[in-house]
Design a protein around this nucleic acid. Structure first.
Length: 453
RNA sequence: GGCCCUAUCGUCUAGUGGUUAGGACGCAAGGUUUUCAUCCUUGAAGCCGGAGUUCGAUUCUCCGUAGGGUCACCA
């Protein structure tokens, strides 16, 4: 007989392939993964597809791919499918019936009204069940009110509670970490465990991920599937980091974690009891942090499939200019969605089209009249003649001392507005660099012409 | 409604029988080479309520209250 302490940790992630990979399922998988990894164990992936009508192979594939994308799978793991294990459940059912812990009950089918079927019911011993939840402590239920629960629709159509208990037992699952919505299921499953003589695993019920109205996060609250966040441009590192901190804390002030750091820091006693509201703003902040770590090349790849037509169809659009613009975009966005929004708002039009603006925009706030901007712009033009447009800094070097002499706002404001046509934009050196010498020249000259009228 | 779970800033959270109740996101103000962004600094913002235990409760106990979960031949 194996004693408890000799067994290595086995956790499991048992999604039902009846929909997309829910963000909550992803977090449950993460916690199971972290716990198993931390204690040198394994996590089992088990597709709970006993409901043949609702289960779809596409969903199973999507869920598996999603978890793999996050890096939460073992490359050589076995994938269990409950639909392929009916013989096992059937033998347990038969043993239970023989032992009298379950019985066949002829009833009218609830699923197909009018049809008579023999459902299998658990013989409820009507007792009090107390189990220890690693996060919440002892929880007690009186199972009397449960009645003789149906554990199989027919002898070869097992139901959830039975399959879970049989599989956890057969697969040697030692730790069940799942959402707290499963707390009421636990006494039923313990009853079945006792009926088949299975050992009780360690239970830990995780706090739920809540929507802003504090109810369980679901489709009606908007995006709930991992795929949607992936599409919006959330990095897997950010997703893992944010999800880990939703309902768990390391006991330190550290907020940024890699997967390996999480494995190291994670433990059940840091897990929260109460549900945690999913805050897209903080999630976005995490994503921005990871976006900053990207190299320009990586960031370029990140944006590749997101560049809208509104940008590429602009008259001066070129990949070269877009590349130069990349650092500006990188420091401003936290998701791909932000980028699209910025572009749609015309935020970067100046880079790819001749700006249109009122002449008065060129007037610095301390100046009485726009006309004083003219000599300054002309001087800048002169200084730029010999300037090197190699980088924003080389452009800055050509103008800086003049700007300091005359007044920074007095020179830089008209320059910046002349070449951007915007009240707000990156600094003029960066803009000039992006536009290139020729275009910068053209725009300043155009601005001078505007002032002259 | 029955059963079960939970309760610190708006949100995620740290924390203790005696603390200026700490951090992060967000928000506000100021600063950082003109505006925007970034960055930095500062600020506003919290112990659900009532009893009890105690010299002293945010912390321990009980009772409320509030919120949530769950009550299938779904998982």
């Amino acid at each position: 007989m194996n004693m408890n302490q000799d067994k290595s940790v086995i956790t499991r992630i048992p999604p039902s392939p009846t929909g997309h990979l829910h963000i909550g399922t992803a977090r449950t998988a993460l916690f199971n993964y972290l716990y198993a990894k931390k204690y040198g164990g394994t996590m089992i992936f088990r597709s709970e597809d006993t409901d043949l009508e609702r289960s779809k192979p596409e969903f199973e594939k999507e869920i598996l791919e999603g978890l793999a994308w996050l890096g939460l799978t073992w490359s050589n793991e076995t994938i269990y499918r409950q639909s392929e294990r009916t013989a096992i459940y059937q033998s347990y059912l038969q043993k239970m019936i023989a032992a009298g812990t379950a019985y066949l009950s002829p009833e009218e089918s609830k699923r197909n009204p009018g049809e008579m079927v023999e459902v299998v019911r658990l013989k409820n011993p009507n007792k009090t069940i107390t189990f220890t939840d690693e996060i919440r402590g002892e929880i007690t239920f009186d199972t009397t009110e449960l009645g003789d629960i149906v554990i199989a629709r027919t002898i070869d159509e097992p139901l959830y509670h039975l399959t879970v208990v049989v599989d956890d037992h057969e697969m040697g699952v030692t730790h069940v970490l799942r959402g707290e919505d499963h707390i009421p299921n636990t006494p039923r499953q313990i009853l079945i465990q006792e009926a088949i003589g299975a050992e009780r695993p360690v239970y830990a019920h995780l706090p739920l991920i809540l929507a802003t109205d504090r109810s369980k996060m679901s489709k009606r609250h908007g995006a709930v599937s991992l795929h949607e966040y992936q599409k919006a441009g959330f990095q897997k590192e950010a997703i893992i980091n944010y999800l880990a901190l939703l309902g768990w804390n390391p006991g330190t002030d550290q907020e940024l974690f890699t997967l390996d750091e999480l494995i190291n820091a994670f433990d059940l006693f840091g897990v929260q009891k109460g549900g945690a509201v999913f805050d897209i703003k903080k999630f976005s902040w995490f994503n921005a942090q990871y976006l900053q770590k990207l190299s320009l090349e990586e960031f370029s790849t990140y944006l590749q499939d997101t560049i809208p037509q509104t940008l590429t169809t602009l008259p001066q659009y070129s990949e070269e200019r877009f590349k130069k613009l990349l650092p500006q975009i990188k420091e401003r966005i936290s998701t791909k969605y932000d980028f699209t929004e910025l572009v749609e708002a015309g935020e970067y039009n100046w880079a790819f089209a001749t700006p249109e603006f009122e002449t008065s925009l060129l007037q610095w706030k301390n100046d009485a009249d726009v006309s004083v901007a003219l000599p300054r712009l002309q001087n800048v033009l002169e200084l730029l003649k010999t300037a090197d447009f190699f980088s924003p800094d080389t452009i800055k070097a050509a103008i800086w001392s003049y700007a300091e002499e005359v007044g920074k706002g007095e020179v830089l404001w008209p320059l910046r507005t002349a070449i951007s046509g915007k009240k707000q934009s990156p600094d003029p050196f960066t803009i000039a660099f992006i536009l290139g010498k020729e275009e910068t020249y053209l725009r300043i000259q155009t601005a001078c012409g505007k002032i002259i009228g």
